[in-house]
């Protein structure tokens, strides 16, 4: 029993990180159709902001979360204006442009903050552990899980129940017709991109106490996040939630029996095979033409 619970908790922790990282990517891809390969760099920037605020200004991680969200979202906003908005008609080129932006971001961080590993302290209040059904889990990991779920609910709520969300859904279905009904789609895209970037920054800040922070950390996350989005179905936020749960638990389980590397390789192979037979994703009811 202990083993089962702790295995589930390990998987849930992996899932929550996947969800955090994938959520921003899913929103941006779902609404604008842009694959943001600089997404991992937004995550990395969030982690560096957390490190900077903590080591230079002595802010606790929890206090700096809102600032980090706004900072990275502002960067996303600027990048959308400078680069992304020119490329909405050329989806393959957005991959390239965002990849180039990612390289630049990584290099700027390496030049300014240095290439060595950085560490962020866990908030003291959350550094203990909690007993659940006989198994122990770190309080911080549970906190991350709660935040991930909270952010998901918030995003889903915006998408489903606000007038802005309604506009987004209209644009997703048909941008031209939505625009002719007076929806400012350029602004909606820009806000979406900024929001997605902000969430990525938040993800990076939350992950930073669990992993070491380095300029290269984003690269692995962007592939993982993309796999979550593809597996879940591009148009479906709930699919993103479900697939991060499935992927997290599966990786956790395989990692228990072999090792992390094999787990990752097997999961990636499985996803590629699934995409071959279900390109619309596992959980998407329908897919945009």
């Amino acid at each position: 029993m202990d083993f089962v619970v702790s295995q589930i908790l390990t998987g849930l922790s992996l899932s929550s990180i996947l969800l955090l990282v994938a959520l921003g990517l899913a929103i941006i891809y779902g609404v604008t159709g842009v694959i943001n390969l600089a997404h991992g760099e937004f995550v990395m920037l969030g982690a560096y902001c957390a490190w900077l605020l903590q080591s230079q200004f002595g802010w606790s991680l929890l206090a700096s979360l809102a600032v980090i969200f706004l900072l990275v979202a502002a960067l996303g906003w600027l990048i959308e204006i400078a680069v992304i908005r020119h490329l909405y008609d050329r989806p393959l080129d957005t991959i390239l442009a965002t990849w180039g932006l990612g390289v630049m971001t990584q290099q700027i961080v390496r030049l300014t903050a240095g290439g060595e590993l950085r560490y962020v302290q866990m908030p003291p209040a959350l550094s203990g552990s909690v007993d659940i059904l006989g198994a122990t889990d770190s309080a911080y990991r549970l906190f991350v899980l709660a935040v991930a779920l909270g952010l998901f609910m918030l995003t889903w709520g915006i998408y489903r129940y606000t007038s802005f969300g309604l506009k987004l859904r209209a644009i997703t279905q048909n941008r031209a017709i939505a625009s002719s009904f007076g929806i400012n789609s350029a602004r909606a895209y820009r806000l979406t991109f900024a929001y997605g970037a902000g969430i990525a920054g938040l993800a990076g800040a939350l992950i930073s106490p669990l992993k070491s922070v380095s300029p290269e950390m984003g690269t692995t996350y962007v592939v993982d996040a993309f796999m979550v989005v593809v597996l879940g179905g591009v148009q479906s936020l709930v699919g993103t939630l479900a697939s991060s749960a499935v992927l997290g638990e599966t990786s956790g389980l395989i990692a228990y029996y072999s090792n992390d590397t094999i787990a990752k390789a097997l999961v990636l192979v499985a996803i590629v095979i699934i995409i071959r037979f279900r390109p619309q994703g596992l959980f998407a009811p329908r897919v945009r033409a």
Binding site: I35, P91, V223, F226, V230, T261, K264, L268, I271, I275
Partner: peptide, 23 residues
């Protein structure tokens, strides 16, 4: 064969490379 093209194909090639590299 699965009519995967464009961005999806691009990302699959990227994932395949990560797999081979990891192995």
């Amino acid at each position: 064969g699965g009519r995967i093209a464009g961005v999806y194909a691009a990302i699959i090639t990227l994932a395949a490379m990560v797999v081979v590299n990891l192995i």
